[in-house]
Design a protein around this nucleic acid. Structure first.
Lengths: 249, 249
DNA sequence: CGGTAAGTTGAAAAATCTCAATCACGGTGG
DNA sequence: CCACCGTGATTGAGATTTTTCAACTTACCG
């Protein structure tokens, strides 16, 4: 769409790609949480650029030098590390309002890759400038730290999931988490379209794709879900919740 | 050393418990990395207090309000989350120079508990003051962010371990990691005394204690380790390394 | 010494993986 | 418009890994 001719409508020009936190619908989920108007404006100056990433393309790759964080504006990403022997492991899925790239902070080099699972757009947040601005604004500093802290807590949750739940429990936890995040963004929490393959779910949950598929089928049989390929409808949220909480039984 | 009164030897007075990064042997591993003399002195003003934690005691518990980070000075800790149904999961082991408490940043409340596995001492780093000081010193800010980033990368490593390695590979990775950290602290990287039980290793690695025990025995039989209870000697590091890297084979 | 917590080992059960065959869907080209 | 192709998803059966349950040993502490 929108070849460079068309002076009437050019949604993908540089101007259109100009970011602006202050007018962004995601500002209550994203980096600007808690900022006042003046601070927001300063942040607008920092988050100046957007970047489009087509489905299947990499936003960044492992090993690449780190110089910016990215806030997902639209679309859906996975982040994955690959081990020395080439196996891939998905460390997370990111949707609108979530930050990508934190893995690069410690070594100035990305340790995961980020791949778009559908056509997506991100806001580029130059890291040097973010550090600098967060020295001026207590609230921005605070929020940035909270976001990093949240990532750590999230990772602990995943470690717990991988370390002590079995297949069905893992998938239940995964679906509930997805539903809850969709809900926070105003989407239906019961009817979702998965953006990732069974294999990607599998490497995220530490399972083989066949196991993931079998669990979906099992949930379907039990009337907990309606599953049709990537279309999933949650029929009995309580049942999923019970699997996750009462995981011991 | 130094206590102002000092009627001879009172190692546990308040004065003796006074912390000082500038004279601490761990400063090259801990928070003060990269600071100049003046900055170090300001940091000394912040990290003013030490706290002793006896073996088996908690430094902090899940749910408790968060107001400080802790740098391990001596000793050894584990951090664990407990799931809703009461199962415990160990998220990490911390030794001298490593930071505890990052899990509290996102919600102002700790989400894990930290328990000393031997008599330990930590430096208390009041969080508000750390944030404040890191607004003044670029280098401190930088280092603090690196530490958080490192924790995220570490967690990704554990997720990969839990998600895609089998028992022996996990234990090998665990031992190599431990050895490497001990080496960085000037201890022998081949002869180590485990501070934790088989069960604690198990919940960290997502295995049952019997499985951990069997893996130790297997390594012993294969001549890779000498194992006698908690005394472990690494005889063939390359073999462990091969297990971790060529995990696919 | 005796008691307790931790560690080891064995055998059977359970969960997950592997390998293989088949099915469904979306897109492409005739 | 429809047949065909390739990717992704499903399902089955047998192999493998890990867990479970249980018995037994060892070390440590007062």
């Amino acid at each position: 769409m929108s070849s460079s001719t068309a002076p009437a409508a050019r949604p993908l020009t540089a101007a259109a790609l100009k970011a602006a936190c202050s007018t962004c619908g995601l500002r209550e989920l994203c980096l600007p949480v808690g900022l006042n108007a003046a601070e927001m404006q300063r942040l607008d100056g920092l988050v100046a650029q957007r970047r489009s990433v087509k489905r299947g393309e990499s936003l960044y790759r492992a090993g690449q030098s780190f110089d910016a964080l990215y806030a997902v504006r639209t679309g859906f990403f996975k982040t994955c590390t690959s081990s020395e022997d080439g196996r891939e492991h998905v460390t997370g899925f990111q949707m609108a309002g979530e930050l990508l790239g934190l893995d690069g902070i410690s070594t100035d080099r990305h340790t995961c890759g980020a791949v778009a699972l559908e056509d997506s757009q991100v806001c580029v947040i130059p890291y040097q400038q973010l550090e600098s601005l967060s020295r001026d604004f207590t609230e921005l500093q605070r929020q940035f730290h909270r976001i990093m802290g949240r990532e750590i807590v999230r990772d602990h949750g995943v470690m717990m999931l991988l370390g002590s739940m079995r297949a069905e429990e893992r998938l239940a936890a995964f679906l509930l988490n997805l539903a809850q995040r969709l809900k926070a963004r105003g989407f239906s929490p019961t009817s979702l379209i998965l953006r990732m393959t069974r294999e990607e779910i599998g490497t995220y949950l530490g399972l083989k794709l066949e196991t993931v598929s079998r669990c979906f089928s099992k949930f379907h049989e039990d009337g907990v879900l309606r599953v049709h390929q990537r279309q999933v409808q949650i029929l009995d949220e309580a049942a999923l919740q019970a699997l996750v909480s009462g995981a011991a039984t």
